[in-house]
Write a protein that binds this DNA or RNA. Structure first.
Lengths: 113, 113
DNA sequence: TTGCTATTCAACTACATGCTTGAATACCAT
DNA sequence: ATGGTATTCAAGCATGTAGTTGAATAGCAA
């Protein structure tokens, strides 16, 4: 799983990690602060943070014994760019929704685009 | 991994599956057609398709012995919506880029372990 | 019927992931 | 130095995922 897009998407595909990012959207935080809302151990949160860091979604600072995390949203922009190439399809799908639902009720399909 | 956003992101976090979606952006295709560019077996591609289907990213039709796949981009729209809530951050990060790069040059060597 | 094509299932292997516990490291304060 | 706080490492476990092979299912064609 080496390509950056896969790495970013995989990092985002976890509710704990998304919650961490959401928290970081309100400002820098230490590992302990980030771990506080969760029931898992610090070590587990530390690993999640490493995944996010590896994906470039956060960067770490250094203040005394703290290594605070900071949100770095650039990889999200890349994902958004990727998804944007499909924008026409989901808009189109809204238009196609009727005919698609109709299709489900009909024995044969009229597949046109 | 029950929430829809995680399911969609995980489904997208694989190059093979993204290639399948890219192919489907050009129109419906059968499993055989979708499998053709890859070196893996049909059964493997079939599993990837099941992941995409489970994420709602494709729907299946039925024509004779074929069960053609069709792109369904609505879940991507949801992901785009999620990412959009961070848009301010990646735009901001562009402004911050200088100071960030400057930070990297500062005697603060905090690499890996 | 028989056989061909398309697709999936079942069982299995190999490896990745999420989590735990307990020990280690690193920095700060006294 | 001693101890406290913050964070990570190492080992292990349980589960999930990507892939394989070989057999099964299902519809189409003679």
């Amino acid at each position: 799983m080496s390509d950056p897009l896969s790495t970013t998407l995989a990092a985002l595909a976890d509710p704990t990690r998304r919650a961490i990012l959401a928290r970081l959207a309100t400002g820098e935080a230490s590992v302990n602060e980030l771990a506080e809302p969760f029931e898992m151990t610090l070590a587990a949160v530390s690993k999640h943070i490493k995944v996010l860091e590896n994906a470039g979604l956060i960067t770490r600072g250094k203040q005394a014994q703290y290594r605070p995390c900071r949100l770095q949203a650039a990889p999200m922009r890349d994902v958004a760019g990727y998804l944007n190439s499909y924008r026409g399809f989901w808009e189109q799908n809204l238009d196609q929704l009727d005919s698609y639902l109709t299709t489900l009720q009909t024995p044969q399909s009229d597949t046109k685009n």
